Simulated assay, not measured.
Amino acid sequence: MSGDEKIRRRLTDFIKAEAADKGFDLCRITAPDSIPQAPARLADFLAADYHGTMDWMAETQARRADPRVLWSDVRSIVLFGMNYGPAHDPREVLALPDRAAISVYAQNRDYHDIIKGKLKEVATRFAARGGEDVKVFVDTAPVMEKPLAAAAGLGWQGKHTNLVSRTHGSWLFLGSLFTTADLLRDEPERDHCGSCRACLDACPTDAFPAPYKLDARRCISYLTIEHKGAIAPDMREKIGNRIYGCDDCLAACPWNKFAAAASEMKLVAREELKAPAIADLLALDDPAFRSHFSGSPVKRIGRDRFVRNTLIAAGNSRDRGLIAACLRLADDAAPMVRGMAAWALSRLMDAGEFERFAAGRVEDADEDVRAEYERAKADAR
């Protein structure tokens, strides 16, 4: 083995050992040119408008499709995976209409902070050892982490478009480290989905137009997290009580049987976020929302969007006990909240009861809120 090869081996072994020491479950390495199919796939995704209102995906298309456009000096890309598998089936809460479902990944501290902090520790030690430049990313730059992770051998992109691992199922947080160091490459993982379509069939909104293709505009995770305006009426009932994200396609994956529940890195759910009562969440004003979700990724969407989602869950619950809370929110300062309160009340009240209530709401200052009342009155008849 030549001197250069020995250096590559030592640096490769070092970074993988550091990754394990910092609590990462997987660490693999690929080349920056390992995803040649990515540009065409991304172009097709954007051309079909599957990205919805996520305009930043189109704006960063060139950098997203090729890591070398993001950083021309990169020679190796190290992918890291951390298990966040739940200790229970996250779909159990869907059978509890008075409770809200929050995606597993958001039931603990913000994973961006957890993963990036550990990546920076690895990067600092690696840069000091190898004398090479490094950059770390966790959803903070236009990096196509899932295709890169597949190319590095962490797993493969399943039919639900998320990464699937033979050892951790669909429950992996991903992070990446770009470096000028020339490291040894790992072999890619082949697709093990076969004829299975459990994830596709589990989707409550039919967000997959075909295997391996996702239309974000129909995805509950997109609608409840990324989408900023009113949620389309034909999607609301399908959302059920999912107020932040959706785990259905991930939880349905048969490969999850090999995934142990995350515990070592304390990526376990906060008890109060596992199945919170809808009534309690509807009572949150902005300061209470910020306090309740301090350190959680839920905080990122803001109180108004969060209450919008919770009002949809309230309407779907058919629980008349929530009428009083929805009536209070019908006078909320945020038009988006007032509009969803109208929809929720139309589902919770008797037709005549809602008709009488709505009669005094036709003069709302916001056009969209007025439209919600008119549509709700028509549907209640």
Score class of each variant (00 low, 15 high):
residue 372 E to Y: 11
residue 41 R to P: 02
residue 121 E to N: 03
residue 5 E to D: 14
residue 175 G to R: 03
residue 242 R to F: 13
residue 292 H to R: 15
residue 4 D to I: 10
residue 37 Q to M: 08
residue 94 L to W: 07
residue 99 R to D: 12
residue 159 K to H: 08
residue 260 A to V: 10
residue 139 D to M: 00
residue 208 F to G: 11
residue 268 V to W: 08
residue 193 C to R: 03
residue 226 E to F: 02
residue 300 R to S: 14
residue 351 A to K: 13
residue 108 N to A: 14
residue 22 K to M: 13
residue 267 L to C: 06
residue 124 T to Y: 10
residue 204 P to G: 11
residue 135 K to L: 06
residue 305 R to G: 12
residue 300 R to Y: 09
residue 128 A to K: 13
residue 327 L to P: 06
residue 132 E to S: 06
residue 37 Q to P: 00
residue 293 F to G: 11
residue 158 G to R: 01
residue 246 C to K: 00
residue 255 W to A: 12
residue 174 L to A: 07
residue 101 A to L: 14
residue 76 S to R: 04
residue 7 I to E: 15
residue 71 W to Y: 04
residue 252 A to M: 06
residue 236 R to I: 10
residue 153 G to A: 10
residue 379 D to H: 09
residue 35 I to M: 10
residue 66 D to T: 00
residue 257 K to F: 10
residue 319 D to S: 15
residue 156 W to F: 08
residue 157 Q to G: 07
residue 144 M to H: 12
residue 12 T to C: 06
residue 168 H to P: 10
residue 302 G to Y: 10
residue 61 Q to L: 03
residue 145 E to T: 02
residue 133 D to W: 04
residue 104 V to Y: 05
residue 318 R to I: 02
residue 178 F to D: 08
residue 258 F to W: 13
residue 85 G to Y: 05
residue 332 D to L: 00
residue 107 Q to D: 09
residue 208 F to W: 07
residue 205 T to Y: 09
residue 210 A to M: 03
residue 299 K to R: 15
residue 344 A to T: 11
residue 190 R to A: 14
residue 322 L to E: 13
residue 373 Y to H: 07
residue 368 D to N: 10
residue 379 D to E: 15
residue 351 A to P: 03
residue 79 L to Q: 11
residue 245 G to K: 00
residue 1 M to I: 04
residue 292 H to C: 13
residue 4 D to N: 12
residue 224 T to W: 08
residue 319 D to N: 15
residue 122 V to A: 05
residue 154 L to N: 09
residue 271 E to Y: 02
residue 84 Y to A: 10
residue 78 V to R: 04
